[in-house]
Nucleic acid binder design. Structure first.
Length: 483
RNA sequence: GGCCCGAUGGUCAAGAGGUCAAGACAUCGCCCUUUCACGGCGGUAACCCGGGUUCGAUUCCCGGUCGGGUCACCA
């Protein structure tokens, strides 16, 4: 493709699981493209039929759509360089490999698995790294033709130079150089005529005009072989941006196998999509200034791949929580109410002041899934220890609590419209009249209506949320217990 | 094991040949407050080790240690 515009791609294999590192790669590829006014491409690498997982492609689509990483070209919407599903491109690779054979950059290999296995055993025994020994590297044209004609199975291997070095510049890791002698004559086309991943990848990236290859650092060591392929074809080498892995701890990568959270898991746990994306942005990349909360549009604006660090980053759930809390607080009351509704419904079946409940909750929850546990006292009064009435700071004891509640009860009974404002007004009048501290009166109230040590909101708010009948019943019950 | 890569507080991280070595999360303390939270203020806490280059290295070079990646007819 003749274009100088930036084209990046996200090329996941559909494994049914969008882990955090994968999402981050997608994010960076998207941001790079959009920042440059370029094109973001989605390509599904589904050539491994054995690993095929039902619904996996949908998970990829849904995750990208939910997070707003919308692609400009892809399997569902097409584009000028399709198809965008690798399994539909299978027929186009063998011809390219044959071109390489023609040029002397690749060769047919007839070695069977038994021979290769034996070869490796010998190499291992003698302390060598396993590698193809070049057995078929120099077969004559006639020999090759005869074998093919006889129907012998074969693969096509890349002919890697045996001397010299190959080097490239990675945006993140800088200059990387390896001896060609450490590179293997990798297989390009398998015996079934299908390409290996590495070969398909190079050809696809070229055919799709990819200018910036953004992927995990696990590909760093195979990149020299990729480049040799590009050179063999005479194609332009893309700019490489290798991203270090996202770790669970210092030793282990975040992975499905370890049962670590995927994007879907995090959302199911009550994290907001935007918060997850924002946190992932910061995992291994740092912005110029000190701000760290960004919308997707702002990320596009400020993203610079030079800010990507080289060291693996450990995923910190606590930091994610903090960022999620910031996002929850920034939500409009309506948006929060909508998102919180399912969590509230799970814990509360009875009537209560939902609006007020939401307004207290929004300031006091960090993750939506905190909600049910925070409000489990609404439907049913929990058992509680009378010692909860004791607070050193508030100077309250079970005894003073009884006194406070007994004073508050008639005042509350006299309120017609049991709103937060009215309760506040009445109780503060009482507090003034008695000349006591706010906490002396309100701490017992909070405990009496909730039975909990920690609650979202204070006694006045909780009373209003519960409604007059229930609040008063609970206060009376508390007084009875304190008697 | 060979090859490649990495290392700044507990975590994410900025940073430059000379800095009191940013900031955020966590943690601790104080203030505010109707508990916790929110908000405000402040504190504790870091340059992996050994050589070299240099007037001076955490920063540059070499070695080591530790960690990661990669060495398939998997992707």
């Amino acid at each position: 493709m003749a274009t100088n515009k930036v084209r990046t791609r996200f090329a996941p294999s559909p494994t049914g699981y969008m882990h955090v590192g994968k999402l981050r790669t997608a994010l960076y590829a998207y941001l790079k493209a959009k920042h440059e006014g370029g094109t973001f491409i989605l390509r599904i690498e589904d050539t491994d039929q054995e690993r095929y997982v039902e619904g996996a492609v949908d998970i990829i689509y849904n995750t990208l759509r939910e997070t707003g990483l919308l692609w400009d070209e892809g399997p569902d919407i097409g584009g000028p360089v399709g198809p965008y599903v690798q399994s539909e491109r299978m027929h186009m690779f063998k011809g390219y490999a044959e071109q390489l054979v023609e040029k002397g950059e690749a060769y047919y290999c007839f070695c069977d698995k038994d021979r290769l296995e034996e070869m490796r055993l010998v190499q291992k025994a003698s302390g060598q790294a396993p590698h193809y020994d070049g057995h078929c590297r120099n077969l004559s044209k006639e020999e090759v033709e005869a074998k093919i004609a006889s129907g012998a199975p074969y693969v096509i291997r890349q002919k890697v130079p045996q001397t010299g070095t190959t080097s490239f510049e990675d945006v993140v890791f800088g200059h990387i150089e390896v001896d060609n002698s450490t590179l293997d004559d990798q297989i390009l086309i398998k015996a079934d005529g299908m390409p290996t991943y590495n070969f398909a990848n190079v050809v696809d990236d070229h055919l799709m005009g990819i200018t910036h290859v953004i992927r995990g650092s696990e590909y760093l060591s195979s990149t020299p072989k990729y480049n040799l392929l590009y050179k063999a074809f005479g194609w332009d080498i893309p700019t490489y941006i290798h991203c270090p892995p996202v770790m669970k701890d210092a030793q282990n990568k975040l992975s499905k196998r370890n049962g670590d959270a995927s994007y879907q898991d995090l959302v199911a746990k009550g994290y907001l999509t935007e918060a997850v994306l924002n946190y992932i942005l910061l995992l291994g990349w740092s912005p110029k200034g000190e701000r760290e909360i960004f919308s997707l549009d702002e990320m596009v604006e400020i993203f610079d791949e030079h800010g990507i660090g080289k060291a693996p980053a450990i995923f910190d759930p606590l930091k994610l929580r903090a960022i999620n809390a910031a996002y929850i607080r920034a939500l409009s009351p309506e948006a929060f109410a909508e998102k919180a509704a399912p969590y509230i419904d799970a814990a509360v079946k009875t009537d209560c002041d939902r609006k007020l409940l939401c307004s207290v909750l929004q300031q006091r929850c960090e993750v939506l899934s905190d909600i049910p546990e925070q409000i489990d006292f609404i439907d049913e009064m929990p058992e509680y220890d009378l010692e909860l009435f004791r607070s050193k700071k508030m100077k309250t004891t079970p005894e003073t609590a009884k006194e406070a509640l007994e004073a508050a009860l008639p005042v509350l009974e006299g309120i017609g419209d049991f709103t937060q404002e009215n309760i506040h007004e009445a109780l503060f009048a009482l507090i003034a009249e008695k000349g006591v501290k706010n906490g002396w009166m309100l701490w017992p109230l909070r405990v009496a209506v909730s039975g909990k040590q920690f609650t979202p909101g204070g006694g006045i708010e909780l009373s209003a949320i519960l409604g007059k009948q229930r609040a008063l019943d609970r206060i009376r019950a508390a007084i009875a217990r304190l008697a």
